[in-house]
Design a protein around this nucleic acid. Sequence first.
DNA 1: TTGCCGATTACCT
DNA 2: GGTAATCGGCAAC
Length: 202
Amino acid sequence: MATPRLDRPFFALGAATLARRLLGCVLVRTVGGRRRAGVIVESEAYLGVRDRASHAFGGRRTPRNESMYARPGTLYVYFTYGMHFCCNVVCAAEGDPQAVLVRALAPLDGVDAMRRARGGRDGVDLCSGPARLCQALGIDRALDGEDLTRSDRVHLEPPPPGFLPGPVGRSARIGVGSAHEWATRPLRWFLRTNPHVSRARP
DNA sequence: TTGCCGATTACCT
DNA sequence: GGTAATCGGCAAC
């Protein structure tokens, strides 16, 4: 029986809708035949050309953010602060650069490998933050542009059977700066009772 | 070509 | 709570 995975139509949604629907889904990275996976417990929507906080604001298109313009279901990985990677799920329609930032995971499979990748850190320090989860899963520039619906290196799966998400919280996005109205819009979603969410609920 | 600062994290006081 | 680490994109000179 084939591994279930989220397919193209699932990703052909606006970023706000997809950000909410990705909560509880499982991000899976396969490294050397071994599976590392975690349940998405926190996400943020970036609405594309009209969103001042988006890398694609105003239609900006460069080699860095080219993946945002690809088909829905593409992985967009960017490098920031000179040392960190963050990963996004591209959505909406091809050419409309909307994406969902994956901000935190509850570790599920391959925890030992994640611990090693994170320099021995464990528990809530393993995957609670966009750069932390990329380090734990081994996601970097080499996976930018990967097709999540076909890749044998990274994909997404529906929530595990029996998974109980609990109440969903919403807030402003984190780290986007406060100079404009887009900074205060509630485009972050998280599972309220999950300890792996990246910071205290505002 | 220079300079500023970022969708962050870890470590210090 | 404050800030250094460390690179690349982009606006301004």
